[in-house]
Design a protein around this nucleic acid. Structure first.
Lengths: 334, 334
DNA sequence: CTGAAAGCGCTTACAG
DNA sequence: CTGAAAGCGCTTACAG
């Protein structure tokens, strides 16, 4: 900027005015400065300008995800990117892999770089470490899972209702021995979905069989092994509720490996790619991930732009998409 | 930092020393400063420190991707994130959607935020707009596609050999009418793959039928429509080479919709999720996306850390994974 | 071992 | 309409 001022023969301040499109500079000087800037290929240093600027904005936000490469995370990421872009803001993103220490480290890394706000899919059970920065004025929105021990905005999905509806659907098709396959039980969404499963069974008067509940399946391979074990046990289930996308993929593979895809009913939670190409097609509880990300981002930018409404907790609905696998009838079908 | 200095009764410079773990501060003062910093929940402002620091490093890099939500892009992103993390660097990422104007805008946005380097999957046919910054010392590495009109490092895949091998494989299984389905013909990888297809045909002495070549299929839906049209035409192909992941998905759907999945041979380029659950399983040309991203990131950090080797062009091999769909024999099988 | 002064590239707050 | 001085939060280059 100093070079541009020298070349165009004006003060630093005048260059700053032209670069920031401030009014009240004579057309003659605007022209001279623009010519000099173009000649020098001048690009303003945004980090320096944000340092001095009264609002301190860096036009960046940080996004703490479970795993950038997971289709769920990356769909969320894209929805947030699109909103951020409309505000001329760029996005830092990183993966936490369900590690609370990594969550904290990543959030801190973003805050040290003066992000204007943070969107977090929390991995840990305690986000109070963010209280100081939140109070100091850095807006934060939690998505997919609410924060713990911290009062902040959150946008989540109705996991309980989705799981309950899925299991009700299986019961309505004549099943009573319904297995639950789930991810880490410490994850908020996994807990909610287990509760939905338990609620549906209870309301139908079905006595719980704890042997049918397999949690902490951390990959599709684990889920595949688990379902094969379940289905080859003495008293196998006739239906399966798979409570997460990777778990559903493992369940589909395991059932197919046993050749039982037309015998065992299956409903999964969350979309899986190419669900429509498998035979039978997989019935799924679908959440609108794009809407989830967009809502979180809108909330964040409202805060960044000064909103001081009370803490918001938004829950988005899910819906069951029947496709075949969930409509295989069981021994108690009417 | 000023507050920490005041609270601990030392100078700014001493706080700076303690925060940056510089040696030569008495244990007594280190302790006092650390106590004060903890009490104030002090977090150093990295943007301010990089402004004054002699190397100007912000510990950030920018990543220009086709579409963050595409599995190919997000796998690349994760590989790069992992390398960046080992250097204590965080990653800005954004989607370009094959729009050259957006590519330029996004790269400029990252550069304005003083990134230490840039990794780009170029969408446009001219990256000379980056020459000034590259010469000024901001390292850049291109990945998946080489830069145009710019001398910079690039890591790409052997698209030509992969496509040629796929088509040779189909020819070896008795096919002569082999369709080519591809993405935007302007994309480097699409062009290379078409060339591989043409080369395999020519070497086998098969006369080209231009009606079998469908390019510019921008989504799996387009690919699905295209293949249905091809297969219901007067002289349909007996085999299909689908040159990109979304195109392959559309091809699988289209062939299945016609009930011809056990008649029409298919080989796709790039991995598709759940390829192993479709019947028959889909034979694919696989590239090591993780290795591609890691190689690009390593190259970038070498440059950031001062490497001044001549421009590098790395090409990674691909391999054909036979799984069923590509081994369906055609009318000229031996 | 410790600190006072200057400056990174920009904006603010002011004067003319 | 234009510009000189001060300062954002930190590090550099130096002195003691």
């Amino acid at each position: 900027m100093r070079d541009v001022a020298a070349l165009s023969g004006v003060s630093l301040k005048t260059v700053s005015r032209v670069v920031n499109l401030e009014p009240g500079v004579s057309a003659d000087l605007v022209e001279r400065v623009q010519t000099a800037a173009a000649a020098l290929q001048f690009r303003p240093n945004l980090t320096a300008s944000s340092l001095r600027r009264s609002d301190g904005r860096t036009q960046t936000i940080g996004l703490v995800l479970e795993n950038i490469a997971n289709p769920y995370s990356s769909a969320l990421h894209r929805a947030i990117e699109d909103v951020a872009r409309s505000h001329e803001v760029v996005v830092f993103a990183g993966s936490v892999d369900e590690d609370p220490a990594r969550e904290r480290e990543l959030a801190g890394t973003f805050l040290a770089r003066q992000v204007d706000g943070l969107i977090v899919v929390p991995a840990g059970a305690d986000q109070s470490y963010l209280a100081h920065e939140l109070r100091a004025g850095t807006p934060m929105v939690f998505v997919d899972r609410p924060p713990n021990l911290l009062d902040a905005d959150a946008v989540t999905t109705d996991n309980f209702a989705g799981a309950r509806d899925a299991v009700r659907h299986l019961i309505a098709h004549g099943h009573r021995r319904i297995a639950y396959l789930g991810d880490l039980s410490s994850i908020f969404t996994a807990e909610q979905r287990l509760n939905g499963y338990l609620d549906a069974l209870e309301r139908a008067g079905i006595v719980l069989d704890a042997d049918l509940i397999w949690q902490n399946l951390r990959s599709s391979d684990h889920a595949q092994t688990a379902i094969i074990e379940l289905l080859t046990a003495a008293e196998p289930p006739t239906a399966v509720f798979a409570s997460q996308n990777l778990v559903t993929i493992g369940a589909v593979r395991g059932i197919a490996a046993l050749g039982k895809q037309f015998e065992i009913a299956l409903v999964g939670f969350d979309d899986i790619p190419l669900a429509d190409l498998v035979s039978p097609r997989v019935s799924l509880v679908i959440q609108d991930v794009h809407a989830l990300g967009a809502a979180a981002a809108e909330l964040l930018f409202d805060r960044i732009n000064g909103s001081d409404l009370p803490t918001q907790r938004i829950t988005l609905p899910v819906h069951l998409v029947t496709a075949g696998s969930g409509e295989i009838t069981g021994p108690f079908a009417a």
